[in-house]
Design a protein around this nucleic acid. Structure first.
Length: 464
RNA sequence: GCGGGUGUAGCUCAGCUGGUUAGAGCGUUCCCCUGUCACGGGAAAGGUCGAGGGUUCAAGUCCCUUCACUCGCGCCA
């Protein structure tokens, strides 16, 4: 018999059905047993009556077991209707009960919201934690958001392209996660902090409109809203200016979140220059919602732009504030090329802020080799060091590089905005602890001697 | 790397100024219950008080060290 999803049971009153799912609650009355059964679509009460042949099995079936039930969908008699409960007016009378996977007693109670349970325990048993209603909602909403973005981008002629996971380590920016090479002992790949260079090369390659649901990895200490790994909707477009990218991102975010039933506070998104934001909020990310609006789940998007390109290093030199591949604002290109007024040079960088989080960041890129070279010159790089570090980009840009720009939208940040969660881990299926320990499995862990030998790695004894 | 918080039963927590056999709720096990819906009633089991060291007649409680988790700062183009 074909399975019926619990959400659809209402359309099958009086019929025989097969449902599958897990037992959330069991209420044993002695001569009859009630189970609340849930599947990925919903929850329903089932009843094993005294005369049911399933009664004997039901007496020994534990909570959280995976089961299959054949039975009849009945309207409940008036006195048994529970109002305010999902499917409170129907129940399934159990004819036969198969235990597909029996469950031991779970280490914690799988309730609607498990956030009160010690996170260490939740992560160790994440596969149980994810059964909770709240986590199911968060992870499914994440999928729906990503799907809506994909659909939007495909409709706008974007091409989804994967870029390498094993790539080159760069000393600039955040610390790389590094992977040893077996074929080249002593040499290392790095996991991408972002597909930045590859997506720009795709623009040179004539792809024109690229996107990717990209994983980005950074080896920096963790925060409530920051993990080693996060995902981003990574976008790059050719023949565009700042306004074009901002327009399409604004349209996509509005369309997708509204499709999911959320409300955007202000359209078009208000804009602040970096200087205005700092003056008004004292930070480049801020929350525009009033206290009342914070209770409603409204999304207050805003753009921040006109960031300074460079900032002083402790050593007295200059370094970039956001992204060395960004272009300066057109009116500051001359200053950059001539190394003048460096502190006043602004970059074509734009950040999307929502409810106090930086949810996206992007820029128009330097597509002329001279501009990119000038950025590195400003940072004090010698010609040799420039060549070594970004020579491949400079070279690529000599073959008809189109003007281009893009953005990366932090998926976890968006989901935190949508769900109201304050912790990034609540919108990831298998997050790490703050100490960098993986959920369920036990990474990182030492390698066996054979593996180390193959990689040409010796482990230094920790000094005491 | 720095600073704060937490660590007592499977889960959530209480345990005052150190003082006999460390408590509660939920869960679990067993018994009873034909309409419950976080069912109910009865009984029971369950703890090296994160780990190590110290002070003391006596430590869950005070001190030191250490580990884990967590929040923030640094860091995070």
């Amino acid at each position: 018999m074909e399975r019926t999803y619990i959400k659809d049971l209402k359309d099958h009153v009086g019929e025989s059905v097969c449902i599958r799912g897990w037992i959330s609650v069991r209420r044993d009355q002695g001569k009859m047993v009630f189970f609340d059964v849930r599947d990925m679509t919903g929850s329903v009460q089932t009843v094993v009556l005294t005369k049911s042949p399933a009664l004997e099995v039901a007496k020994t079936t534990t909570r959280e077991s995976a089961i299959s039930i054949m039975g009849t969908v009945n309207k409940r008699p008036g006195k048994n209707i529970t109002v305010g409960v999902e499917n409170g007016d129907i129940e399934v009378s159990v004819g036969s009960l198969d235990v597909l996977g029996a469950s031991d007693v779970p280490p914690f109670e799988i309730t609607e919201d498990t956030s009160m349970v010690d996170e260490k325990t939740r992560l160790q048993y994440r596969y149980l934690d994810l059964r909770s209603e709240r986590m199911q909602k968060n992870i499914r909403l994440r999928s729906e958001f990503v799907r809506a973005c994909r659909e939007y981008l495909f409709a706008k002629k974007f091409t989804e392209i994967e870029t390498p996971l094993l790539t080159e380590s760069t000393p600039e920016g955040s610390r790389d996660f590094v992977v040893p090479s077996r074929l080249h002992p002593g040499s290392f790949y790095a996991l991408p902090q972002s597909p930045q260079q590859y997506k720009q090369l795709l623009m040179v390659a004539g792809m024109e409109r690229y996107f990717q649901i990209a994983r980005a990895v950074r080896d920096e200490d963790l925060r409530a809203d920051r993990g080693f790994e996060h995902s981003q909707i990574d976008i790059e477009m050719s023949f565009v200016e700042q306004e074009d990218v901002m327009a399409i991102v604004e349209d996509m975010m509005t369309e997708t979140v509204e499709k999911l039933g959320f409300k955007v506070r202000e359209k078009p998104f208000p804009r602040f220059t970096y200087a205005e934001a700092m003056e008004k909020f004292g930070a480049d990310k801020f929350d525009l919602r009033t206290d009342d609006e914070k209770k409603t789940g409204v999304l207050a998007y805003a753009w921040v732009h006109k960031f300074p390109f460079f900032e002083k290093t402790p050593e007295g030199g200059w370094t970039f504030t956001h992204n060395p591949f960004s272009a300066p604002l057109p009116e500051h290109a001359d200053d950059l090329l001539h190394g003048r007024n460096i502190e006043h040079i602004l970059t074509a960088q734009y950040d999307l802020v929502c409810n106090g989080f930086e949810t996206a960041g992007g820029s128009i890129r330097a597509h002329r080799p001279g501009i990119l070279r000038a950025v590195y010159k400003t940072m004090g790089y010698s010609d040799e060091r420039i060549e070594d570090s970004i020579g491949h980009m400079l070279k690529a840009f000599t073959y008809g590089a189109p003007p281009h720009g893009g953005i990366a939208i932090g998926i976890e940040r968006v989901l935190m905005n949508l769900t109201g969660e304050s912790y990034l881990r609540e919108v990831q299926a298998f997050p790490m602890t703050r100490g960098g320990q993986t959920a369920v499995m036990n990474a990182p862990k030492p390698l066996q001697g054979k593996q180390l030998n193959e990689l040409g790695i010796e482990i230094k004894k920790k000094k005491v």
